[in-house]
Design a protein around this nucleic acid. Structure first.
Lengths: 207, 207
DNA sequence: GGAACCAGTGTACCACGGGTACAGTTTGCG
DNA sequence: CGCAAACTGTACCCGTGGTACACTGGTTCC
């Protein structure tokens, strides 16, 4: 039986986890299958049982990463919406929760797999690049829907590029991750999120 | 004689240029010395005449990239300052020029080498990582100086995290580059820059 | 006009690691 | 028992980074 205390090691999942940290540290090409199987304590053949080649590993990594990313955001904004009915305040609360979550990480965030893949995209097939694009369009759509609700209630004083403002959620997180890593400073990302929150507030909140 | 019409091909520079595009497309590890020498039409020995190993190539690439990056920004803000004496308006003009420059690129920007290296930083030695950190601190310092001048003349209505606001210049560009690449949309980066400009304006401009 | 030097070429070689192929084996389960 | 899932073991090929070293064509200095 497979209950929560199952001894089943779920090798495939372990490989994906190991691969993700390695890729975020060294890039995909420099991440060797040998090092993954050594760390997972399986044989090289065992790897090829789970993934027919390295490309399939990449595909599974992206799938896993995107699903996890979506689940975190879904949960975050669901909690924010439970605290509030107003679309603007809901978003502001959500961004605050997001910033707090990122501030409470024990060490500097290891980075975004989508960004890593983006900067090595010639290594991957079209399917993977499309998944990547779809995931960032997911962020755009998610935030755009909220901004559409917000403008209906709080018409901005000046014209706003709502698509760019929606994209800035993802853009600013990606940038914050990079700066945080470069400077080894865990505070950069949460502060960038709060600054984005300020922009949203200044744009829509009646003064 | 070496004049401006010199036939001197400057092999080293060509190698660095080729390496930069290749690394931005595939990452450093996947960029082989053999492909570079083939593209530059020299022999492998020729490569090792210029760089003692691949690590030295990486170092030279970063040096070149950072110098170029600095030169572009210096030029940009020098032009902006010539148009204006006011610190706030000078920055706003500079950001507008920056956005226009990015909007006029013929195709989607190939990306930031510092970000690429950041996402593969375990491949590089401490010296290179330090150069990378120093370059982003350069952005912070540059913008922080401008904001310090701005707050003196335009005290903001609400407290502002000036360091985060300075970092956001780099952060938002990094993010805009990534989103632009992922979605193959050249308009994303300039619109992100204009949005950052809006935040600066909203933060300091008396209403 | 020869020596020194710059910017390479050509050839040969090696170790390592990624990746492929495929047959064989253990483990859990109905 | 029988079967499938989840592997193991072995053998092999090739690309890549890197070393070693002898050589060369052009330029400049004296």
């Amino acid at each position: 039986m497979l209950d929560s205390t199952s001894r089943k090691p779920d090798t495939r999942e372990r490989l994906l986890e190991l691969a993700e940290s390695a890729v975020l540290a060294k890039g995909f090409a420099a991440t060797s299958i040998d090092e993954l199987v050594a760390a997972a304590s399986i044989s090289k053949s065992g790897f090829f049982y789970h993934f027919k080649d390295k490309g399939e590993l990449a595909e599974a990594m992206m799938q896993r990463y995107i699903a996890h990313d979506k689940a975190v955001l879904d949960d975050l904004f669901q909690r924010a919406d439970e605290l509030n009915d107003d679309p603007l305040h809901g978003l502001l609360v959500g961004l605050k929760l997001f910033a707090e979550m990122m501030a409470n990480l024990p060490e500097v965030h290891p980075g975004c797999l989508a960004a890593s893949f983006c900067y090595q995209d010639q290594l991957f097939n079209k399917k993977i690049r499309d998944m990547n694009a779809a995931s960032v369009l997911g962020w755009r759509k998610r935030f755009r829907a909220r901004f559409d609700a917000i403008v209906a209630k709080y018409p901005p004083k000046q014209p706003v590029d709502l698509e760019a403002l929606s994209d800035m959620a993802a853009s600013n997180v990606e940038g914050g991750l990079i700066l945080g890593r470069m400077l080894k400073d865990v505070t950069i990302l949460p502060r960038q999120i709060l600054l984005y929150r300020d922009l949203v507030r200044l744009t829509f909140q009646p003064s």
